[in-house]
Amino acid sequence: MTADLLTHVLRQGDRALVLSHRLAQWITHAPTLEEDVALANISLDLLGQARHLFTYAGEIEGKGHDEDHFAYWRDAAEFRNPLLVEQPNGDFAVTIARQVFHDQAALLYWESMTESTDATLAALAARARNETAFHLQHSAGWLIRLGDGTDESQRRAQAGVDAMWPFTLELLGADDEGALRADGLIGGSIETAWRAAVAGTLLEAGLRTPTEAHQRAGGIHGTHSEHLEPLLEEMQQLARAHPGASW
């Protein structure tokens, strides 16, 4: 059970860290200064969630590892984030589509986790749920603006949705967490609620919900796309050049 819980917490922490990192890559490149501020803000919230989750992972694991150990000293194959969040930023529409899919899943996840029998996760969920509600307001608001904006923005928004759709099934829960569910540590499936909510957003944006195309998965089991390794290499390079140093 401890091993299952550790895996679950790392899946969530890695998801938050990797997406935080992707959003940070937008800073100084965003379409407006307001978006530089907004994307940095969401990136910071996710980073904060990741830090809490990694600290808790260290406690569960019991080997004295701190938050930085999990971020800087594991290789790609040890990361357990879903493939969606490691996908490159693409244009603003790709980033927004990725974010809507993620935020909707994260919101449902954290809402369910407020009732977790794990007190640490339940406490974190209470805060993360509120943060995520704001993130979804931002991302869904943009998807609707892009979908209902100009011809070009609608075309790009649909292309973003189509490009990110194959990575969505993996967001909706793992197939190996039955024991955690049975003990009330995590909640039930979010799939039905996610599909309904995302279909509603896409409808409002005037965008087509993709039909069940070929789905890609594996990140939550450590099998990643080619995009995670370069991301980690950049992130970890300096820390790994100075083992044992404190900053």
Binding site: S43, L44, L47, R51, E67, Y72, E234
Partner: peptide, 13 residues
């Protein structure tokens, strides 16, 4: 993207 600890990354962001 290269900050050497998560704390420093958060402060710099």
């Amino acid at each position: 993207t290269r900050a050497p600890s998560l704390r420093r990354k958060a402060i710099l962001t």
